[in-house]
């Protein structure tokens, strides 16, 4: 009884050589599976983590560029206003000095400006 069992076991467990190319096929399939499983990770990395970083970086760049444009625009506007004020101030000064000058030049003319005395 035990001899029979032993024989059957030996028969069942005897070494069987794999068919030709079996190892290559296994390795190839494993590589395919690995590539398949790696694809979603790369996608996630690109559109997930890296994508978020890119989005934040782009938003910061846009905000910086926007701020720079706004600052430049406001500075230009203030500068133009200051320039207009300077020109206005000098024009007013000029017009008053012209009155003084013309009056001084008319001293020998028909209308004599009144010379003031020491205040």
């Amino acid at each position: 009884m035990s001899d029979r069992l032993e024989r059957e076991l030996k028969k069942a467990l005897q070494r069987v050589e794999p068919p030709a190319g079996f190892a290559e096929r296994v390795l190839a399939r494993a590589a395919r599976e690995e590539a398949k499983s790696a694809q979603p990770r790369a996608w996630f990395r690109w559109f997930g983590m890296s994508g978020l970083r890119w989005a934040v970086a782009c938003a910061l760049c846009l905000a910086l560029a926007g701020s720079a444009v706004l600052y430049r625009h406001q500075r230009q506007e203030k500068g133009e206003q200051a320039k207009e004020q300077v020109m206005l101030a000098l024009q007013i000064t000029s017009s008053k000095l012209r009155i003084a000058s013309e009056s001084v030049q008319q001293i020998s003319g028909p209308e004599q400006p009144v010379r003031s005395e020491e205040p």
């Binding site: 000029s94 001084v104 010379r115 020491e118």
Partner: peptide, 24 residues
């Protein structure tokens, strides 16, 4: 500045003695 912004060539001669209230 004569002629610029309409500022005339004002002939002014400040008193060297620095006397106040000199009229031209």
């Amino acid at each position: 500045l004569g002629g610029q912004f309409g500022i005339p060539k004002v002939e002014v001669h400040p008193n060297p003695a620095g006397k106040k209230g000199e009229s031209k």
